[in-house]
């Protein structure tokens, strides 16, 4: 083999390397979140947290709280919204749409859950907020101060949310750091 051919080989190698490297980093990393792997959706209702906390004077616990038996109430059902929003409280067209499409027919809002975990993961809110004294924003970000919900970025392959989701590795790292147990049955019953 002569020098030219060898060089040609190296060039092709470098070309392949760079192409694959860029494609991988552009299409498959979390940073750019573009199709084909990633999809982006908006929440079915543009819920303004800021308006409810600052203007209406509500606190997080009004909608997100622990029940008597220690289970986490999660995202409130539409019956909670009906308590105030049977009639429009302001002039926003979004509120009107919300009332027309969900409150009047009594339909539950199909919220997209940013932190959705697979079915075999049993996550306990009380263990983290009461026992470990974590703040909500450590996992969920400053949701309470947003005027509109962040976009829901999800993977088209697994259908799981991407940006704020935590995979097992993230949980285990934090557990290790804070000396919490990492046995299988802690999270997988």
């Amino acid at each position: 083999m002569n020098q030219e051919e060898k060089k040609g080989g190296l060039g092709a190698f470098i070309l392949g390397f760079v192409l694959a490297f860029l494609v991988g980093w552009f299409f498959f990393s979390n940073w750019f979140a573009v199709p084909p792997l990633y999809g982006k959706l908006e929440q079915p209702v543009i819920y303004d947290h800021l308006k409810h906390t600052e203007e209406a004077g509500m606190v997080c616990e009004d909608c997100h709280y622990f029940r008597e038996d220690g289970t986490w109430s999660g995202i409130p059902k539409v019956e909670k919204c009906i308590e105030c929003h049977e009639e429009p409280m302001g002039e926003s067209p979004e509120e009107e749409r919300f009332i027309k499409e969900y409150i009047e027919p009594g339909r539950e809002v199909p919220w997209l859950i940013y932190s959705r975990q697979p079915k075999n993961v049993f996550f306990s809110h009380v263990a983290h907020t009461k026992l470990a004294n974590m703040e909500c924003k450590e996992c969920h970000g400053e949701m309470g101060y947003t005027s509109k919900p962040p976009p829901y970025v999800y993977s088209r392959v697994s259908r799981y949310p991407q940006h704020t989701v935590m995979i097992m590795e993230d949980c285990m790292e934090c557990h290790k750091k804070h000396k919490a147990k990492n046995y299988c049955f802690i999270c997988h019953k």
């Binding site: 092709a12 390397f17 694959a20 490297f21 990393s29």
Partner: peptide
């Protein structure tokens, strides 16, 4: 091809 494979390994794919 080999370059592509090595590049893939160094990417998050």
């Amino acid at each position: 091809i080999v370059g592509g494979a090595v590049g893939t390994i160094f990417s998050p794919l």
